[in-house]
Amino acid sequence: MSSIQPVSSGSGSEDPQYVMVDDRKKRRMLSNRESARRSRMKKQKHLDELINQVVQLQRENNEIVQRVDTTTTCYINVESENNILRTQMMELSDRLQSLNNVLHIIEDVSGFSMDIPEIPDPLLKPWQLPCPSQPIMASSNMFLY
């Protein structure tokens, strides 16, 4: 470290005022260097914390994306199964309607009174099942996602 020294007069003795200013300059320079060093260290520490936070947030984001993908897959599977069940229900309703029509014709032709149940419309009363004696099977893991 080089220090700046005032140019001395030709007599060989230094002026005390210059020495005092020089000492203050040296102390201020050292203080400024130390302050700059602390500032750089603080800035580096903050940068390291931000980098760690970014890594943690990316990890959490990846986990959330995986859960969303899993949930979406489950939703697609359930929706597909629902579509199949709706189609089957429509087919069975059509068959039942056809059989009821045949029974009505037989009733009209034969003259015998038959007990022909009404076919419930699932769109009007979706909470009423067409076959109340049939239990609904569900698994405990269907609501995990």
Rank of each mutant, 00 (worst) to 15 (best):
S140G: 08
H104W: 14
S13D: 15
R33S: 11
M142G: 00
D15Y: 01
A36T: 03
D69A: 06
N52E: 02
F143S: 08
I4Q: 08
S35C: 03
M90I: 15
R24H: 00
M142S: 07
Y18M: 02
I76L: 12
R27S: 08
N83S: 08
I84G: 02
M114R: 01
P132C: 01
I116V: 00
E91G: 06
K26S: 11
P16C: 00
N141S: 11
Q44T: 07
L50G: 09
D23T: 04
Q128F: 07
K125Y: 04
Y75P: 00
E91K: 11
P120K: 04
M90Q: 12
P135Y: 03
T70I: 09
H46W: 10
F112K: 08
E34P: 02
L129N: 06
A36Q: 07
N32H: 15
Y18T: 02
K125S: 08
V19T: 09
F143N: 05
S11V: 09
F143P: 01
L85Y: 00
E14Q: 14
R38M: 10
Q17C: 08
V68R: 06
I51K: 05
Q5D: 06
S93T: 11
I105N: 02
K125T: 13
E79C: 05
T70R: 10
L124Y: 06
M41V: 14
I136M: 11
M20E: 14
Y18F: 06
N101S: 13
L30H: 09
I76Q: 07
E91P: 02
K26W: 04
R28K: 09
R38T: 08
D15R: 03
S3E: 15
E34D: 15
T87D: 09
I4P: 01
V68A: 09
D15N: 05
S9W: 12
Y145I: 06
V78E: 07
I84D: 07
L47K: 15
L124E: 13
S8L: 13
Q128L: 13
I106R: 01
T73G: 12
H46Q: 12
G111M: 04
P126N: 01
I76K: 05
S93Y: 13
P132L: 03
V65W: 03
T72N: 11
F143T: 06
L96K: 03
V21I: 14
E118N: 13
P130S: 01
E14Y: 12
M142V: 14
D94K: 03
A138L: 12
E49C: 05
E49M: 09
P122I: 01
V65Q: 11
E49Y: 09
L30P: 05
L92C: 02
P135D: 03
N101M: 11
D15M: 03
I116W: 03
S98Q: 15
D48C: 03
D23F: 05
S93N: 13
Q134L: 12
S140P: 06
L103A: 02
Q5N: 05
